[in-house]
């Protein structure tokens, strides 16, 4: 029961920012004339922002870049990290494992934001470029965590038994080792999405991938800080949306992975 409730709560928390982000731009309509900065009311439902734009409209417009970039970057990071981790967990060739994992360690040593800023200053990437960059800096962490979980599963007698049965690499790696590492992977994915959102938001606020006055939740939080006590909504609403998205994702993953208790037969009467 509690699992179901947690699932519903997570779903609701994820749905609001996700729907706003993806469908928002369709309903935003014309930008309209700019009003006075940081006002409440006056025909503006959530007031106006630091340059007098309607906050509600900015909220509708500003989610897409953040959410899509973060989701794409997370997915991309795992797309690289999971195969690398499974391969290195299941190989008995030391050199192959070193070849797969050591370059990632080098990347891990470079501060991620520094790397993003450095590349951005040379190439000035768009949203897609930003997603690629953020994915790249997340691959080492993700690969190491998946590798650790998969390594534990790969050392179990079950893997040897599967080899004894002549099972294919694919079936052992994905069907057993990957599946055993799934819980760890999902737990990591929840945290990673949060981290990626933070990174994308930070990059956006530093002007990488988006214009400094763009309609973007992260940019909104930063630029409207100055008027926080005059007009809190311009900061609180986008900030809450980002928080809801990350918390909801974590709850959703937790609920989805809640283990059904198996009754051990050995302890049965």
């Amino acid at each position: 029961m509690t699992t179901h409730r947690r699932f519903a709560l997570g779903l609701a928390m994820v749905a609001v920012p996700l729907v706003l982000a993806l469908a928002g731009p369709l309903f935003a309509g014309d930008p309209g004339a700019r009003g006075v900065s940081f006002t409440l009311g006056g025909g503006h439902w959530l007031g106006t922002d630091f340059v007098g734009r309607d906050v509600w409209q900015q909220v509708l417009l500003g989610g897409r870049t953040v959410v899509v970039t973060a989701l794409a970057a997370t997915a991309l990071a795992y797309l690289v990290a999971v195969p690398v981790a499974l391969m290195s967990a299941l190989t008995r060739l030391r050199w192959l494992e070193e070849l797969l994992m050591r370059p990632l360690d080098v990347l891990l040593a470079v501060p991620s934001l520094l790397l993003i800023l450095l590349v951005a200053s040379m190439l000035s990437p768009g949203a897609a470029g930003l997603a690629l960059l953020v994915a790249l800096v997340n691959v080492p962490d993700a690969a190491r965590i998946v590798r650790a979980a998969a390594g534990e599963a790969a050392a179990r007698p079950a893997v040897e038994a599967l080899r004894m049965q002549g099972e294919s690499w694919w079936r052992i790696a994905v069907g057993y080792v990957g599946r055993s590492a799934l819980r760890t992977l999902a737990a990591d994915a929840g945290i990673r999405l949060t981290g990626v959102l933070y990174l994308v938001s930070t990059a956006a606020f530093l002007g990488v991938g988006v214009a400094p006055d763009a309609a973007d939740w992260a940019v909104m939080v930063d630029r409207n800080r100055t008027g926080l006590f005059v007009q809190p909504w311009a900061v609180v609403v986008p900030a809450l949306l980002i928080v809801a998205l990350t918390m909801g994702t974590n709850l959703l993953f937790d609920a989805a992975l809640e283990k059904k208790p198996i009754r051990k037969k050995g302890r049965r009467p």
């Binding site: 007698p157 079950a158 040897e160 080899r163 049965q165």
Partner: peptide, 28 residues
């Protein structure tokens, strides 16, 4: 030496039963 290099017939010919049966089965 390694069962990865044994043919299916060779694998089938020599089979091994593990000490810890619980750990030798896929729990899913």
């Amino acid at each position: 030496r390694s069962l990865r290099h044994r043919s299916r017939a060779q694998l089938a010919a020599v089979q091994y039963v593990f000490q810890d049966a619980r750990a030798a089965f896929d729990e899913h």
